[in-house]
Amino acid sequence: MTLVAAGLIVVLLAGITIRLAIESAGTWARFGLGFLGGTTWDVVNGVYGALPFVAGTVESSLLALIIAVPLSLLTAIFLAELAPRWLSVPLTFLVELLAAIPSVVVGLWGVFVLSPFLRDTVEKWLVGALGFIPIFSGPAFGIGLFSASVVLAIMIVPTIVSVSREVIVAVPGAQREAMLALGATRWETTRRAVLPYARSGIVGAVILGLGRALGETMAVTMVIGNKDIVPTRVFDQAQTIASKIATTFNEAQVGIQTQSLIALGLVLLAITLALNVIARLLVRQVAGDGGGLASGG
């Protein structure tokens, strides 16, 4: 019976993949791999292409990584290497608490608080200072790719922080001591002994964060603007795979439209599965089999 339960997990994993493949077969049959490159999503004429959503997903996630990775790594280093225990324990807890906040609540805050704030501060400043570069040109509405990326960054910071903190903590003390005994400062010890040792695990943590960003749905749906275009500016209103599915799946006609949405889902699944497998293997290599990764991700 326990075997059945355990087996069910593997079956579910396979089942989800197969089911999505079957349900989207019509789209693949009609458009083939050209589906991935198609830029139109025309319900009236029945022409479906995934590019705007793939682009929106990838762009928002990468932008989120650019914001979140330096912040998260410094935080993980601070928590694992620098902070005294009385500070690192509550801070770690608070960062992990951030991961527990429901996506829809983050989205609500994103729409009504964060994006107006960004519009009036950071975005205004960016347009003013860097507006001559096409991707930073205005106008900036708050709602759009940039706000979505900031929201995503906030949501993946806990993942990257907690996994990389664990990986850094797992670096043997002897490595630190050896570097310190050579007359290295804390910073040099971290950079030259600790981080190289933990490198693959940290890469794993970042990939886990990326996986989470790619699949994050509600908060992004609420702030990205839901416009089916291939975004070319960071302030463009856009659409990700997940937000496209979330906003249109229920209205979709069963048939090629639904199939195409599920095909989008399959693309997302393939990307996130691959990333997760890679990330887990990398993290396992450094931090071992255990660890509270399930709760962190």
Partner: peptide, 8 residues
Amino acid sequence: FQRPSPFP
């Protein structure tokens, strides 16, 4: 140190 600790 007690245990050899080359940087791997």
